[in-house]
């Protein structure tokens, strides 16, 4: 039977092997910086990771309760919104992206369009006032890149 711990352990082992392969390629400067160069510590850590990843594959814990498809979809939506927010904050300024992002996260936690809209608008304006006047951060309130 495939268990999550086995998959995770295997992933750790593969990443660790890639780390060792990467460490062997490190460019060392001509002058030596001591008997232990930049390769040793990464290889040491990666070696221990292979060991522990193997242990996890050999003795997996009971399966965690992963979210259902719908919950997973909601989390995926949240991730997309957060990534979008990261890209939108500079070109669009603070207010609009913040209202949309916090409104969407609110609706994902509690599916109620009216409350989510109010939360988004309230948080956007409220946090802007706090950041700007109480904390003195320099934030651009809005901007239109087109």
């Amino acid at each position: 039977m495939i268990r999550s711990d086995r998959v995770f352990g295997l992933a750790i082992v593969l990443v660790a092997l890639a780390m060792i392969a990467g460490a062997l390629q490190f460019q060392e400067p001509f002058f030596a910086s001591g008997p232990v160069g930049p390769k040793v510590f990464p290889i040491l850590i990666a070696g221990l990771m292979v060991l522990c990843g193997g242990l996890m594959m050999a003795r997996p814990d009971p399966e965690p309760d992963w979210p259902h498809a719908m919950s997973l979809l909601r989390i995926a939506v949240a991730v997309v919104v957060m990534v979008g927010y990261a890209y939108a904050l500079k070109p669009f300024g603070f207010l609009l992206p913040t209202a949309i992002a916090s409104g969407v996260i609110a609706v994902l936690i509690r599916p109620d369009a009216l409350r989510a809209t109010l939360t988004g608008a309230g948080l956007s304006v409220g946090l802007f006032l706090i950041f700007k006047y109480a904390l003195g951060l320099t934030l651009v309130p809005w901007r239109w890149p087109f």
Partner: peptide, 20 residues
């Protein structure tokens, strides 16, 4: 304070903090 206000608030404070 309900979670649907608190958590978006936490998210936005985290983002603005790291962005600043």
């Amino acid at each position: 304070v309900p979670a649907y206000v608190l958590l978006p608030g936490v998210t936005m404070v985290s983002f603005v903090g790291v962005y600043s």
